[in-house]
Amino acid sequence: MSYELLSGKVVLITGASSGIGAATARVCVREGAAVVLVARREDRLAALAAEIEEGGGRAVFVTADVTVPQEALGAVEFAVSEFGRLDAAFNNAGTGGDRTPLHEMSDATYDGIMDTNVRGVFHCLRAEIAAMLVTGGGTIVNNSSVGGLVAIPAAAPYIASKHAVVGLTRAAADEYARQGIRVNAVAPGTTRSEITADWFGRNPGMEELANSLTPQGRTAEPEEIGAAVAWLLSDRCPFLTGAVVPVDGGFVNQ
Rank of each mutant, 00 (worst) to 15 (best):
D107F: 04
N117Y: 05
A210S: 09
G189C: 05
D198K: 15
G94V: 10
A164H: 11
A187M: 04
T219K: 00
E128F: 02
V229H: 04
E82S: 09
G94M: 08
H103A: 04
G201H: 14
M114T: 13
M114N: 10
A164G: 07
V118K: 04
V146P: 01
R182S: 04
I129P: 01
T95R: 13
P153K: 10
H123I: 05
Y110S: 06
C124Y: 10
A130H: 10
A227L: 08
T169S: 11
I195S: 14
I225F: 05
R170Q: 13
E194K: 14
W199K: 14
D174M: 14
I113N: 03
F90T: 04
T219G: 00
M206P: 00
T219W: 00
L213V: 00
G96R: 14
A197T: 15
P204N: 14
G136P: 09
L213F: 06
G137P: 00
Y158Q: 04
I129H: 01
T109A: 15
S106T: 10
N203P: 13
V150L: 09
R99A: 15
N203W: 13
H123S: 08
G217H: 00
R218S: 02
T190P: 13
G189S: 06
R182T: 05
P101D: 04
G112T: 09
E104R: 09
I195N: 08
E224K: 02
G137W: 00
G180K: 03
A197C: 10
A228V: 12
A210Q: 11
W199M: 15
T190I: 11
P157R: 07
L86P: 01
S81R: 15
G217L: 02
T196H: 01
R119K: 15
P222F: 04
E224W: 01
V146R: 01
S106L: 02
G120I: 07
G94Q: 08
G97C: 11
V141A: 03
H163W: 09
L86D: 00
D174H: 15
E175N: 07
T219E: 05
N143E: 09
A171T: 15
R119W: 12
E208H: 01
T219S: 04
G94S: 13
A185M: 06
R182K: 07
G96Y: 15
A93C: 09
G147P: 05
R178W: 04
R126Y: 10
E194G: 13
V118E: 06
I129K: 01
L213W: 09
T196L: 12
E82K: 09
L168R: 12
A151G: 07
A177D: 06
A160V: 11
E82T: 02
P153L: 03
L86T: 03
T214E: 00
A171Q: 14
T196R: 12
A164I: 06
T190Y: 05
Y158E: 03
S144K: 08
T139P: 00
E221W: 09
I195Q: 13
C124W: 10
R170L: 05
V166K: 12
F200A: 15
H123Q: 13
D174I: 14
A131F: 10
G112L: 06
E82F: 01
D87R: 09
D174R: 15
